[in-house]
Design a protein around this nucleic acid. Sequence first.
DNA 1: TCCTAAATAGTAATTATTACGAATGGAGTT
DNA 2: AACTCCATTCGTAATAATTACTATTTAGGA
Lengths: 159, 159
Amino acid sequence: MIPKQQVEKRVADSLEICRRQGVKATHQRTEILRELAGSEEHPDAETILTRVRQRVPTISVDTIYRTLRLLEDSGVIARVGSMRDRARFDANTDRHHHFVCTECEMIGDFYSDAMDQFPVPQEVSEMGSVEGVYVELRGICRKCKQKAMKTEGRTGEKP
Amino acid sequence: MIPKQQVEKRVADSLEICRRQGVKATHQRTEILRELAGSEEHPDAETILTRVRQRVPTISVDTIYRTLRLLEDSGVIARVGSMRDRARFDANTDRHHHFVCTECEMIGDFYSDAMDQFPVPQEVSEMGSVEGVYVELRGICRKCKQKAMKTEGRTGEKP
DNA sequence: TCCTAAATAGTAATTATTACGAATGGAGTT
DNA sequence: AACTCCATTCGTAATAATTACTATTTAGGA
Ligand SMILES: [Mn+2]
Ligand SMILES: [Mn+2]
Ligand SMILES: [Zn+2]
Ligand SMILES: [Zn+2]
């Protein structure tokens, strides 16, 4: 659980960045940001819609998707997750990376100075200018591994 | 341009791996693999469909998507690209990473021992077991930067 | 308060991907 | 060769995710 105070700071900071870019701070945008900033699970668009609707019952799908794109373009949220699944979102703008479980799609944060300070290979500098890095470690999470253990034993042969 | 010999080796190797998993080496699968192995541009499903159709005119969308999923699950091709765009595919199974232009979606390969040998943070080991890494450097490619230069000057004010 | 461009709601449309059911094909068998 | 069996494919329909449209509302500045 993220402390309320911290959530509100993140929301305020994000809106301030938006305002500086001439983007209005509407009720809907605020609530979408608040929802994201208060979550550690990197929710998808539909989940955000469902949750924000509890507070803003008339909010539309268009607004959700349009706002998520806007906030992403403004640099206050990020789009994460691998291509096999739907897009997931993240309001944590601290430099960090993700571990993704390929079984249940759980997404967890991790921090790594070594990875952040990674030198861009010359090979890449010749292709263009690098402006961002996306790192994703993929595997099986604790929970899914345990589930696999339990299911074991009753696999394979027929009676 | 990738030498034909090299393309054929990759196709043969991939099919061999599939066969070992009990997956038949059909005409369609062979052609899809050949198309991917011969390309350096990481094409999307539609592009692959169009190109393979020139050689196998009756091939269906279902076969394209089904086969791409199958080959990915078999580990002989990879899905690349960022969430904002459609899925792109890669038959290059050598350990490597990608630079993606956020303007034109060009995807280029790069190699980095340092990145490959990156130690998994303990933070992550506690979340689960890591089985793969996906690294993507994002920015603006040479071509797009030049285009932006040319367009400059005629921006901003009205007459 | 009043004004106006920007933003939203509700819905339709588009795009990418997956599913379905009938037909095909190839490996093994007689 | 004819027959069987089951995986695979084709053609098309369906689904899921995302984006677009337009009448109406609203934020924020004068
Ligand atoms: Mn995160
Ligand atoms: Mn590649
Ligand atoms: Zn899991
Ligand atoms: Zn480019």
